[in-house]
C-alpha cells in the first residue's frame, strides 16, 4: 500500500518520475533479498543521495538512476549489517522523516521527499550538520556515513576519483 501511495506521488513531477524509474529497477533487483530500509526509508534515502553526493554522481540519464539505485541498495545492505540497536534507531529516524509534519517541522523540508530538489535537501543537510542539537548532528552523521560508504565502496565511483581499484595479484 505504501508503494502505491509512493507511486501515486511519483506521477506528480518529472523529478519524481525519474525517482520512480530507479525505484522499479530497485524492486526487481531486490525482490529476492531481505530489505531493511522499507519503502519509506528507500524513498527518503533516494531523495537525500543526490544532495549528499552532489558533484560526485553521474550528472544525468540511466547512469545516474543506476548509481542512485545502487547507493540505496548499498545503504540497505549496510543497515542489515548493523546490530539490532542501531537498526532500530535508523528505523526510527526514517519513520519520523516519512511523516509529513515531522519532515516539515523537524527536517525543514517543505516538499514531499520524491519532489524535494537538491537545493532543498542540501539546505536540510547543512542545517543538521550545523545544528546545535546533538541528536540532529548524529542523524546527519549516520546519513553521511551510510550514503558516502555506499557510493565510494561501489567500483562505479572509482574512476572519477582516480582510483584504479585494488591491485591484481
Amino acid at each position: 500500500m505504501r508503494r502505491r501511495t509512493f507511486l501515486a506521488l511519483g506521477t506528480a513531477s518529472a523529478a519524481a518520475l525519474a525517482a520512480a524509474g530507479w525505484w522499479s529497477w530497485l524492486r526487481t533487483r531486490e525482490a529476492s533479498e531481505k530489505r531493511t530500509l522499507g519503502d519509506d526509508g528507500a524513498m527518503i534515502v533516494a531523495a537525500i543521495v543526490p544532495a549528499m553526493l552532489a558533484g560526485a554522481l553521474p550528472v544525468a540519464g540511466q547512469e545516474r538512476r543506476t548509481a542512485i539505485g545502487e547507493v540505496v541498495i548499498g545503504v540497505d545492505r549496510a543497515i542489515a549489517g548493523l546490530p539490532a540497536h542501531a537498526r532500530a534507531e535508523i528505523g526510527q529516524l526514517f519513520a519520523l522523516l516519512a511523516l509529513a509534519p515531522a519532515r516539515r517541522a523537524f527536517a525543514g523540508v517543505a516538499s514531499p521527499w520524491p519532489e524535494a530538489g537538491v537545493a532543498e535537501v542540501s539546505a536540510f543537510l547543512d542545517r543538521w550538520r550545523d545544528s546545535g542539537w546533538a541528536l540532529k548532528r548524529s542523524a546527519y552523521d549516520a546519513l553521511h556515513q551510510l550514503i558516502l560508504a555506499a557510493w565510494y565502496g561501489n567500483p562505479r565511483s572509482w574512476a572519477a576519483i582516480g582510483y584504479a581499484g585494488p591491485p591484481k595479484l
Binding site: A54, A56, G153, A160, Y163
Partner: peptide, 23 residues
C-alpha cells in the same frame, strides 16, 4: 575510498571536490 569518504566532513560539492583529488 570508503575510509576517506566517511572521514571527510560535509557533503555535496566540497566533499566531492576533495574526493576528486583522492590520489
Amino acid at each position: 575510498p570508503v575510509l576517506a569518504a566517511i572521514t571527510l566532513p560535509s557533503h555535496g560539492a566540497s566533499h566531492a571536490g576533495f574526493m576528486k583529488a583522492f590520489p
